[in-house]
């Protein structure tokens, strides 16, 4: 093996990069790139939700006062949260819809917790552009499908909070939650 890289047997001119240059460049470039990432990451990541925002990220809801057919609106992560006690008729309506008719196919069973199919807990945020749909309070316009109706651009949701008509692409989001007692849920 040639010890003098400048006299490369393959005829490269002395100004061409030597093989050793690659090692030098790599040895400097790799830590420099790692350093750059280490500096840029906090600059970018500072924009993610901060600890105080995340600390407010759970909500407890008392279900004992909500009669079948009623709903309450509360907040979860500063967003409106709909908690609705579905009537047996509303549950039956939701279960009667074939999945093939749905834009975002999900069963009511999948959108609720086992044994609590009457408790529909969703974000009150229209999946189109973030307006709050009507329908959680008594007397609200619930749209054609008896669930929720967004007044901004006319999206209509059924009794399982699934998108049925209008511009919204997805069903109302179901946040993570668990029943801490038969009459209380911890959302988040």
């Amino acid at each position: 093996m040639a010890t003098d890289d400048n006299n490369d047997p393959q005829g490269e001119s002395p100004n061409d990069p030597r093989r050793r240059d690659f090692l030098n460049i790599a040895a400097v470039a790799f830590p420099a790139a790692a350093g750059a990432v280490a500096v840029v990451f906090p600059l970018v990541n500072q924009m993610s939700p901060s600890a105080d925002v995340l600390a407010e990220s759970t909500t407890t809801v008392d279900l004992s006062k909500i009669q079948p057919g009623q709903g309450v609106i509360t907040t979860f992560r500063k967003q409106p949260l709909f908690v609705r006690n579905l009537t047996p008729k509303e549950v039956a309506e939701a279960n009667a819809v074939p999945l093939s008719e749905l834009r975002d196919p999900e069963t009511l069973e999948k959108r609720t917790q086992p044994g609590h199919e009457n408790w529909l807990i969703t974000l009150g945020v229209c999946t189109h552009l973030g307006c709050i749909p009507l329908g959680i309070n008594e007397g609200d316009n619930r749209g054609k499908f008896g669930g929720y109706f967004c007044p901004c651009h006319g999206s209509q949701y059924d009794t399982a909070g699934r998108i049925r008509q209008g511009p919204a692409p997805k069903n109302l989001a179901v946040p993570p939650y668990k029943f801490t007692s038969p009459t209380a849920v911890l959302v988040g």
């Binding site: 939700p49 990220s57 500063k78």
Partner: peptide, 13 residues
């Protein structure tokens, strides 16, 4: 969206 807002809805951040 959450990264841009620094939260889940527009707020202080």
């Amino acid at each position: 969206r959450v990264w841009l807002l620094g939260g889940y809805a527009p707020d202080d951040a």
